[in-house]
Structures are given as structure tokens and as C-alpha cells.
Design a protein around this nucleic acid. Sequence first.
DNA 1: CATCTTATTGGAATAATTCTAATTACTACT
DNA 2: AGTAGTAATTAGAATTATTCCAATAAGATG
Lengths: 144, 144
Amino acid sequence: MSAQTEKHAVLSEQLKACDVRPTPQREVVLKVILDKRDHPTADEVFARVKSAMPTISLATVYNCLDTLVSCGLVRSVNFERGPTRYCPNLRPHAHFHDEQTGSTHDIDLPESLLQKVKTVLPPGYEASSVEIIFRGKARASTSN
Amino acid sequence: MSAQTEKHAVLSEQLKACDVRPTPQREVVLKVILDKRDHPTADEVFARVKSAMPTISLATVYNCLDTLVSCGLVRSVNFERGPTRYCPNLRPHAHFHDEQTGSTHDIDLPESLLQKVKTVLPPGYEASSVEIIFRGKARASTSN
DNA sequence: CATCTTATTGGAATAATTCTAATTACTACT
DNA sequence: AGTAGTAATTAGAATTATTCCAATAAGATG
């Protein structure tokens, strides 16, 4: 089995495991998000996907992204005003938003910290997720 | 001095202290945000402001909100996809977003926790702010 | 292979925000 | 007070981001 075919099979399995039909569109959307590990907007995903599949529509990209988010293969993030961004990193992590460059960096979060943070919740509050966004400046920045 | 006049004077002072001209529009926008302590969108602020000042324009509401945010009298928050919301609570706090009701609750954050959270940042990262958003369900919910 | 369901498509519709150019309100001088 | 200069407001147009819709296509089920 070629590397290509195998990679394809992996994506396909990930989708099936979430009970969503592994359509070519979903596979290619998932692929471009996993390939370049940044935080693209739907439009940016659309642009990247078009080279592999020129006939795909923007509506489908939105549909696929929503599907991938709701089955947990991709996370969506909203920094300030502006389009929703999509994130391939599924480990618990925070986002650091560099205000000078506009770039976004993932910051791994140990489970212990997440637990600690949840202790500020008054009784009766059940958090299913915790999102942490830092803003500021970073010395060396390459990713986004 | 009447309570009304005095309140007016306070708002006016707050604006001047930030080096922004205390225009009637800015005062009324700030007032409606401080009066009902929820997390309104620009449109909701516009609707509330219109009863006090029917001639105000939506563009002005956006302008005033931007000004108030940048001089630190109001905070802006972005939950998922959707319009920016504005928050009168200036104490350090997190937001709890109740997924059933859609309501948002402020959760006070002790300074010690903020410090603790910042320890996850690698060297070279300087955070000027930390935003924390919980999502989940809360037992008793009234505010938003 | 007929039927039923689900996904995709392109375009129109809506929502949220920003831009623009014209007017109005202040401020600072004289 | 009068006027030049700057800043704020206004209404509406323009832009951006996203969703909706109706028609077609693809896949699953029996």
C-alpha cells in the first residue's frame, strides 16, 4: 500500500469512527487542516482545498467544517471580531495570540492545570470544556 | 446635586479620565451597559440606547463601543460564531457559557489563579491578558 | 435496481461590521 | 464673540462571514 493510499485510509477511518460518511469532500477538508497546522478560516480552507478539488463549493467547506467540529476531529476558535478559525490540535491546549504579528500559537495545557482552573466554578456549574486565550507578545514567532 | 446629575457626572469623569471627550452618545452607551449588567451585542445596545436618544445611529454605537473598549471601561467578548458582546464587569473574571440556555455568567477569578495559569507559558511569551471561557451547564441560571 | 436518505452545489439571503462622505459639535486662538 | 482646525456623529452604501434554499448527485437499504 502506498503512503498516499495509507494516509487516505487513515482519514477515512477517522471519519467512519465518528459515524460520518467519509466523502471525498470531508476527507480533503480534513486533510488540508491536518497538513498545514495553523488556524485557517473557512475561506482559507476553501482556497487550499480548491487546488485538490476545484469543483468544491464554499457551502460544502462550511458543512464539512461543521461536521468535523461536531465529531471532534477539529476544534473551532474565535478570537476577537472576525471569522471563525479551525484548529487541528486535539490535545488540551490554550491559544496565545500575538498582538504584534497577529499569529496564534498553541500552548499545551497539563490536565492538572485544567482541573485547577475548574475549581473557580461555584457549585452547580458543570464545565464540559475550558478555553483559554492569552494575548500579548512573544519573543520568537514563526507558526500561526 | 440630584442623583441623576451626579451619576451623569461620574460617567463623564470616567470618560475624561480616559482622555476621550464625554459626548452625550458615549455617556448614554456607557450608561446602558452599566445599567443592565449582562452581555449585550452592539445591536442590543443600539436598541436600548434609542429610547434615551432616538436619533443615535448604529455606526455611532459601534464607534462608542470601540472607544469604550480601547479605554478599558468595557470589555468585549467573543464566544463562538456570532456577534461580539460587551461586558461591564472590569474585575478579572471568566465567562461561563451555559449551552442549554445560551446565558452567560461571570465567574470571578482570583489573581492567584491568573498567575498560576500564566505559568504554562514558555519563556519569551508575555501575556498582557488572559481570557477564560467555560462551556457547560449550570444548575440555577438567571443572569446572562 | 428502485427507493430513501444524506451530501453537495451555486446562488440568493441574511447578519455583522466597516467604510465613506457630508454634517455637526467642540476647542483653541485672537 | 468669531473663526479656523480637529474630532465625532450620521445615514447609507459596501464588505465580509455565514446560512439558507432548492435542485442535483451520490450512497445505503432492501
